[in-house]
Design a protein around this nucleic acid. Structure first.
Lengths: 152, 152
DNA sequence: ATAATAAGTGAAAGTCTTTTTCATTTAGCG
DNA sequence: CGCTAAATGAAAAAGACTTTCACTTATTAT
C-alpha cells in the first residue's frame, strides 16, 4: 500500500482540489476497505452519521479518479465499483461467482503475451485487465452452486 | 466460427423457443458483425425497416444468452455489449482506447497462471477474462491521443 | 388446413443508476 | 475577517434496462 490518507489529501490539494469533510469521509471509508466498493456501498456507510448526499459521492469518486487516486472497475455483472489506487502494485481480480467475493491476484506475468499480441495486431498495448472467476473456498465447502456463467 | 445462422435457430428450437421474425433479424445482424454490439447498436440497425422494438432486443438478447448462444461483455467503460458465441474458440479482447475498435486476441496461454492463482487462493478457477487496451494502428498513424486510462 | 394455446411482442409506465441544474454553503486565499 | 471560486444538496433530468398488460403469432394437435 503506497498512498496513505495523508498522501491522498496532499495529492488532492496539489491538484487544486479543496479538502472538504465529505471528501475526507469518503476517502476514509475507502481506506478502511480492502475491496472494491460501489457508490451505493460507500453511501450506505456514511449515510446515518454525516448526511453526505449520494450526488457528492458520485462527484467525489469522479474527482478522485481524475486525480488518479482511485480506479474504476466494471465487474462482469455490470456494476461499477471503485478501489483506492495502490500504485506500483499491478494486480488483478478474482471474483467468486457464487458469493461475489473479490480478492486480488498478484502479478500476472503477461508481458510476453502483450508482446505477442502487439506483434500480431499492430496495436501499441497500454494496459490490460485480467479477471478470473471461480468458486471461493468457503462456497466450495458449503457446496454452493456456481451460476455457471462462462466468459467468452 | 462454429455456430451458423441455421445452427442458432436449431438450438433455439431445441430449447423450446419460438422462431420469430424479430429473433431472425437480430441473429442476422449479430452474425453480420465480428465485434460486440450494444442493444442500442443492434436496435439502430433494425429500426428503419422492420420496426422491432428496443424491448424485444433486450428480451431476445436475454433469451439468446440463456440458450448459451451469445455472451455478455461489460467493457471497462461500463457499457454492456453482446457477441455471438463461437464455442471452442477461447479468445480475448483488445480495445483501442482512442477509437473504441475491438479486435479479438487468440489463445492466451494462461493455464499455468490459473493454476498458480488457484493454489494461492484456494479458489476453484472456472474461467477468466483478459482485456487489453492500447492504440490501434490507424490511431497511431493519425497520432490521435489515447485517453491514458490506466487499469488497476 | 385450422383452431387452440402458450409464447412473444409493443407501448407505456416503472426502476435503478448516474448526471445536470441551480441556489446555497464553505474551503482556502489574501 | 471577508472574498471568491469551488463544492454541496435537492430536485429534476437523462439513460439504460425491466415490468406490466393487452394484443398478436408460431407451434401443436386435431
Amino acid at each position: 500500500m503506497v498512498y496513505s490518507y495523508k498522501d491522498i489529501l496532499a495529492e488532492l490539494r496539489r491538484e487544486g482540489y479543496k479538502i472538504t469533510p465529505q471528501r475526507r469521509a469518503i476517502i476514509q471509508i475507502m481506506e478502511a476497505t480492502e475491496s472494491h466498493m460501489t457508490p451505493l456501498e460507500i453511501y450506505s456507510r456514511t449515510n446515518s452519521s454525516s448526511g453526505i448526499s449520494l450526488v457528492t459521492i458520485y462527484r467525489t469518486l469522479d474527482t478522485l479518479e481524475k486525480a488518479g487516486l482511485i480506479c474504476q472497475f466494471n465487474t462482469q455483472s455490470g456494476h461499477t465499483s471503485y478501489l483506492l489506487r495502490r500504485p506500483r502494485s499491478h494486480h488483478h481480480h478474482l471474483v467468486c461467482s457464487v458469493c461475489g467475493l473479490v480478492v486480488n491476484i498478484g502479478e500476472c506475468g503477461l508481458e510476453e503475451v502483450e508482446e505477442r499480441v502487439s506483434k500480431d495486431t499492430g496495436f501499441k498495448i497500454v494496459s490490460h485487465t485480467l479477471d478470473m472467476s471461480g468458486v471461493c473456498p468457503e462456497c466450495q465447502k458449503n457446496n454452493r452452486q456456481t451460476l455457471g456463467r462462462d466468459f467468452c
